[in-house]
Design a binder for these strands. Structure first.
Lengths: 312, 312
DNA sequence: CCCTTGTTCTTTTTGGATAAAAGACATTGG
DNA sequence: CCAATGTCTTTTATCCAAAAAGAACAAGGG
């Protein structure tokens, strides 16, 4: 394990990131772009709820719009002076909340080649690599602790348990148990339940994807997530929700590193999904469970293979 | 909801607590108490592994022992000069790691009367109440987030989901699913598996408790935890482990506030446990599952009752 | 009187400082 | 040469400060 010590990334001078402001500002420009000059802007409270932020932020954005001359004040109302230009938009890497960015970087690190199971996680080092403070890393580690990918040892250090065969086995065991349960409930759903309609829609999307698989096979990941979430939604359970969250995360990041046989893998999965959907729609629990079991087994095997094959 | 604003608890001057040092020091006194004056102490590395801390800490303790005259140096070895006195022990509330203390306080607050479901958690206020910094509270909240008792809303605030009927339902659903699974594996265990012996031991403990229930019924909580952990241990799964952890925590803190019918509640549970154990030992999956189902149902009902009955 | 804006106060987020604890390296006695 | 001790470096835990974002309060216009 080569211990590469990256130089400290140049830090911002300010303490708290202005991501909320920046995103809101850009969104406001979008809204302004749909208006005609001279038109009256919505009031601050209205804007606030529309953009999902506090009025404080809206006011900060307004001040900037005023300063740039996109908006003028007339009496008590704000008028659009000119539409936004391309150059008015704020760019930069900090349009994403810092928390999310660190989480993303950490997850990528976790399933990447620099982290082997049993590895001791060095918070300080990660902070340097990611260009953030130790506090942010610490936050991230704490949040991930219950995912089972990390373990805190007695000396206060974190140990990566990593994407081991054990981990995958336990994760899929859990998924199986919960999904079987959900399937049983699903088939018993009344015919007018909205889930059936959603299922039909998803079925169509699967067909469409299969038809144009050559080009669109990368879209499967999202479809997969939505499909399993629909199944899970009929037996709502926050713990199950968490597990699905972990699964998505793992899948997402793991298969980012591991593109082997991606097209074939997805083709098989799409077909299995369609069989699974047919099973559900048949109303026969045994058929549905059978298709479900088959699909989960394949997913498990695929994941295990990709782990064993890629020891980097 | 009366918003009581407690005054800031007087803070320690130092930044990091010296709990490790203090606990190690007291433990060392215990060890010294078992020795005779003139005897040679173990070397620093040996002490370090024995006490489960770093040599740095051991050295700090040694320095204090030397200062207090309990130990003298002779050449290269350390000799016991005098046994520890009662007054040599360090007392104080900070023998417990701060993290644990905050966790405990938070949990108590969470299931206590000051926190109703839907309540917005004010980190700053909690920090003041607990006499710690916001960072510590934040850490705690982050760690608890996946337990499902807390939810982070878009504006960065935490909302308590609390011990609602929904929560209990979902928690027990999960428990049921996982425990049934474990039971199936348990009955299929080979006769020479150590779990059988442990089970027999637990059975005896249950009998003993039942025999003297009047006085010892409060010990059930611990027994319950150990029993279910044994069951779970045959189908090891870190997610299930987490769920059991939540269960224990909830039980522990919830029933601290809710002592209603405690003796009766525990008596029923002990008897159900014994039936459950008998079911397992019979080797008949159906019998074991039946007894298990019965017990979990009772536990669920009991918990639900105690929530509904005590809206404080 | 309600809704908008202006103002102030709170809470959260992030980085940084510092002591505690752990770990690594150097030295020395047997 | 091995293991214990002495010294130095690194990492972690904790609190604090400052800025951002949220929320509450106050004033004014229709």
């Amino acid at each position: 394990m080569p211990k590469v010590r990256l130089p400290t990334v140049s830090k911002a001078l300010s303490v708290k990131t202005k991501t909320v402001y920046k995103r809101t500002y850009n969104q406001s420009l979008d809204l302004l772009g749909q208006m005609k000059p001279g038109q009256v802007l919505a009031s601050e409270p209205v804007m606030a709820v529309k953009l999902g932020v506090s009025r404080t932020t809206v006011r900060a954005v307004m001040a900037e719009l005023l300063r740039r001359g996109m908006v003028v004040i007339e009496g008590r109302s704000k008028l659009l002076a000119r539409g936004p230009r391309r150059s008015d938009y704020l760019a930069g890497g900090d349009l994403e909340p810092l928390t999310d960015r660190v989480e993303r970087q950490f997850m990528a690190w976790m399933v990447g080649p620099d982290c082997s199971p049993g590895h001791v996680v060095n918070g300080l080092d990660l902070a340097r690599q990611f260009g953030v403070s130790t506090s942010s890393v610490r936050d991230c580690l704490n949040r991930f602790s219950l995912f089972g990918l990390l373990e805190k040892q007695s000396n206060g250090r974190w140990r990566a348990r990593g994407l081991t065969v054990d981990f995958v086995a336990e994760l899929f065991d859990m998924r199986e148990v919960m999904e079987f349960r959900a399937v049983e409930r699903f088939v018993a759903l009344p015919a007018d339940h909205p889930a059936w309609q959603e299922l039909a829609l998803l079925s169509d999307e699967h067909e469409a994807l299969l038809f144009d698989l050559e080009r669109r096979y990368r879209e499967f990941s999202d479809l997969d997530h939505r499909f399993h979430r629909l199944i899970g939604s009929v037996a709502p359970n926050r713990f199950f929700g968490n597990i699905q969250g972990v699964m998505s995360l793992i899948f997402h990041y793991h298969y980012q590193w591991n593109k082997k046989d991606e097209r074939l893998r997805n083709e098989i999965a799409v077909k299995e999904h369609l069989a699974y959907i047919a099973g559900l729609q048949s109303g026969d629990p045994a058929a549905a469970l059978g298709a479900c079991r088959l699909h989960l087994e394949t997913a498990r095997t695929t994941m295990l293979d990709s782990i064993v094959v890629s020891p980097s």
